[in-house]
Each structure stands twice: as structure tokens, then as C-alpha cells.
Simulated assay, not measured.
Amino acid sequence: MDKKTQKKPPKSKKIRICAFELGKTDKNVIGGGDLILPQMSKHFPSNLELLVIIPHLAIKNWEKFKNKKLLILPKMYLESKSHPVFIFFLYLLRSLQASKIAKETRTDFFYSSTNIFPDVLAAYLAKKTTPTIPWVARIHHVIPSPFKRKGNFLNNLFSFALDKLALTLIKSRADLTFVLNNNLNEILNRKGFKNLKTLGVGVSVPKKSTKTKKEYDAVSIGRIHPTKGIFDLPLIWKIVIQKQPHARLIIVGEGRLKDKLKKSISDLNLEKNIILAGYLSESRKINILKKSKVFLFTDHEAGWGLGISEAMAHQTPVIAYKHAFINEIYPKGLFSVPLKDKRKMAEKILLLIRNENERKKVALQAFQMANTLSWEKVTEEFLADLKLIQ
């Protein structure tokens, strides 16, 4: 056949996703849920157009990721306020602005990338106006009753109420809902949710492994918030230094309760043993992980524990509070202790920081575990499921 008459292969059909990431209230606080879509976007095919609607506070989440178009909402006075009433109205305004933009955007899917209220409300409003466009939702975990949660009761009541409302909206109109683990899938299924699909997350495993001198006995990375178990850490470390007086813990992360954490450290005379590093860039955070003997996961609530995956990828053994998802996702490469059991946590820390052979054994298992978690596979599965509802 003549080259001129040969048929060109058909072009892949263009896929357009309009995503909502509207829950950011502090530019220096990055949660695990903030990282999922940016990481997946690195593996999206060339025929996929991703539009992400974000507040200006979330720009830092996306600055290193190229395969997307950002639409940044204008700055708002309410962003400087932390009272729940102001945050509610901030969320409401963002949702209204984002849903209006989405309705005027040519797209194949609406995607609420978390179950934080403004992400869900914006997608719900857009779906209500254009019901033929599928809405894909994501649920990371369900917020427990304020009576079962540490921290300010009013703030917890506010979070609980908004989470309840967000889940109700997802249940009523979402065409497909991704959840992070099978336990959460079962819980939501019992509540009457339909079209649920368990889809976890991946981790970026470095191609080369280099030995790094250990400068810290342990590291904790995460938002300074009661639900992260952050205020357990000084109490745990007080037990550790009774047996290991010079042991050092470094805490990486920011939050509005940083002064309260400083006071807790000071009250226990731990200023020489606990370092508050604050917000660190991704490269500096990874460097700290490599320099630490163990990674501590003290979250009281979680759906996956992305910090666990990252620690494992850098061959840092993990000691974690026990959650329903731990055995499902991380069958090896970590030690788990009963939730909120500070003494058991301290005992495991002492075991690993004192025993290099045991630490190396767990580190190897952790690295092997990390290699089973692939962003490429997660993204492929995500896109395959989207095709089923298109």
C-alpha cells in the first residue's frame, strides 16, 4: 500500500477531569490526602486534561507537578480566621465559586479528591446542575463522634457535622466512590453506600539506596493536631529517656497548636531531647527520614498512613499505633502497638534504637513492602474505573 494512502492510527479519545481541592486553610500544612492526586497526575496519559480548582494556599501542593492546569481562587479575608464559623463560610464561598467555574468548564468527570466538605459540596453542586457528567468521589476516613475525639470539643463537633453532611452528599449523588481500604469499604457499605471501590495509594521508591549516618533516634512527620497523636509524643519520649537519656526525637510539621506542643515539651523538661523542625521541603523531609533510626506513626485516625509508606521507601523501620487497615496494607515492615498505648510504643522504640540487627531486618522488610506500592498501578486502576462509568 502506498504510504500516502495508509491510514493513520486513530487518536486516543481526550479525557477531561475537573478536580476540586478546596479544603486548605494553612499553606504550610500538607496532609496525606493533598498528595494523592498530584502523584497520580505524573502518570496520567497525554490524552488526559486535568483541571484542578484550588485556593491560593494550595499552590505549594502542586508547584512541582506539570501535567495539570490550575485554576486558583482569589484570596479571601476569611482565610486568616480559625474559628469554625468563619471556616464554614470560607468553605461555602469556595464551593460556590468552584462549582460555578466547573459548570462553565468542558469536562468528562467531576472529581472531589477528598471527603473534606468544600470538595464534596462543589462537586455536588456541579453534578446537580449537569447531571449527565459523572461525579467521582474519594473518602479517606470517617470522622468519629466529638465525644470520642481529643482536642477542642467545638472544633471536633464542627468537623464531625461537616463530615456527616459531606458523606450524605456523596451517598446521594456520586456515581463512583473510591475508598482507601477494605475496612472503610465495609463500614460505608453497611451505611448504604453504592458503587464503592477500594483504591489505595502508592509511594515513590528511590532507585538508588545510600547509607546515611543516623542523627536522630526517631522521627514523626505530620500536622500538629490532636488527632495525629502529636501530644502523645512528649509522654512517649519521657518514658524512652528513662532508659536512653540522650535519645533524640525530631518532629516535622506545622499547625496552629505548635505553642501548646512546645509547652508540653517544656513541662516535661524535654527541650534537649525533642526537636521541633516545623515545615520542611520534600527533599529536607526525606533527608531527615534517612537520618532517623525509626519512624513513629501515632495517628489516632487514619485511612492509609502515607507517612508509613514514605518511611518504608527510605528503609526506615516503622512503629505504629494499631488501626484496622494496618495488617491489610502493611503485613510486614513495621511493629504495631495498641492504639494510644504510650508505654508499649516506648518499649518498641527502645527495642529498635538499641538493636541494630533487628532494626536492619525490619528496614529490609519495610523496603520490600514499599516496592509493592505503585503509583503507576493505582493510576491505571483509577482510569480503568473511570471508563466503566463514562
Rank of each mutant, 00 (worst) to 15 (best):
K128E: 12
T177N: 08
R138M: 06
V136Y: 00
S145W: 06
K194S: 15
K191L: 14
A126Q: 03
R138P: 09
S209H: 11
K197H: 14
D175C: 02
I170Y: 00
V240I: 14
T198H: 02
I241E: 01
I170H: 01
R173S: 13
A137C: 08
R138A: 14
K150I: 06
A161C: 10
L235E: 10
A174H: 01
T132W: 09
N195Q: 05
P131W: 02
L169W: 02
F158H: 05
P144C: 13
V201N: 08
S220K: 07
L199P: 10
L188V: 10
G202A: 02
F153L: 15
D232C: 04
L176R: 05
P234T: 04
F193H: 04
K128C: 11
V179I: 12
G229E: 06
V142K: 15
T129P: 06
I170K: 02
T212H: 10
N185T: 06
A122E: 03
F178M: 06
A166D: 09
A174Y: 00
I221W: 07
A123C: 14
V240N: 02
G192E: 02
V201A: 10
N156Q: 04
G200T: 14
A161S: 12
I224G: 00
T198W: 00
A174Q: 02
L169P: 06
I241L: 10
F160E: 01
A123R: 09
L167H: 03
K213F: 09
F178P: 11
G151L: 11
S220A: 15
F193E: 08
K211H: 09
N195M: 02
G192W: 01
I143F: 13
K197P: 14
I170N: 03
N195C: 07
D175N: 09
L167C: 14
V142M: 14
R190L: 13
K208W: 01
H225P: 00
K238S: 06
D232N: 07
L196G: 13
T177E: 05
V201L: 10
